[in-house]
Nucleic acid binder design. Sequence first.
DNA 1: CTGGATCCGTCACGATACTG
DNA 2: CAGTATCGTGACGGATCCAG
Lengths: 124, 124
Amino acid sequence: MSEYEHTCMIRGDGGRTIRAILDRICNKWTLLIVATLDQGSLRFTDLHKQIPGISQRMLTLTLRNLERDGLVSRTVFAEVPPRVEYELTPTGKSLIPPALTLAGWAMEHVPHIEASREAYQNRA
Amino acid sequence: MSEYEHTCMIRGDGGRTIRAILDRICNKWTLLIVATLDQGSLRFTDLHKQIPGISQRMLTLTLRNLERDGLVSRTVFAEVPPRVEYELTPTGKSLIPPALTLAGWAMEHVPHIEASREAYQNRA
DNA sequence: CTGGATCCGTCACGATACTG
DNA sequence: CAGTATCGTGACGGATCCAG
């Protein structure tokens, strides 16, 4: 049942590759923004409305990082009032399936984890 | 080509479920320890040797969190010198496939991301 | 051998206020 | 509309020393 032969993908370089990706998606808002942008091009205010609880500052910062990493494209239209559209790049879109795999695992196992965590708290 | 119908798994509860799992695997060492334990039961020192760069403190802390969340079992043998064995629980083992999916994405796209990041740095 | 305790620097994140 | 500037806080992680 073990997949040990394959876990070298994770352990291979001492975890540097896996951490490179974790560093990018493991912050509080990245995956949420990527998932929201999967519906297509959106502007700043639309994103802000569709992601409950995010501050302007974190939306800006996370979008900048996503743009820097080539996962999101940012298009400025020279209009009045100003308009900026954000859209997933092909690389950004390719993150969706792995993210869904992770989300599936989460929905299946998080309840058990929460229970275990609570049992641990009420231990002897 | 969009999987928007499915991204509700991520966005569904405002991202709380996906963040619950990310909070658990997104620290520096968790996935590395889980991947290492996929080869079977190991004791503290063996883990310390097989994971380059980890400190005793972080190994202890991460193992405690994994135990609390029910992903790793901890067995103490009443011997001298003391012996403690760590092993993945079924829940812990179930994390391997999603982790491999993520690692696969990383190995495929991280080079492109690194390049984009460097290009962004040398922008106008 | 297996950790626990402590100090300390760094950084993500949040709230708030201001701007072209 | 789409941000930027500033301040404060708390968690994470590294180094070191100590203990059963």
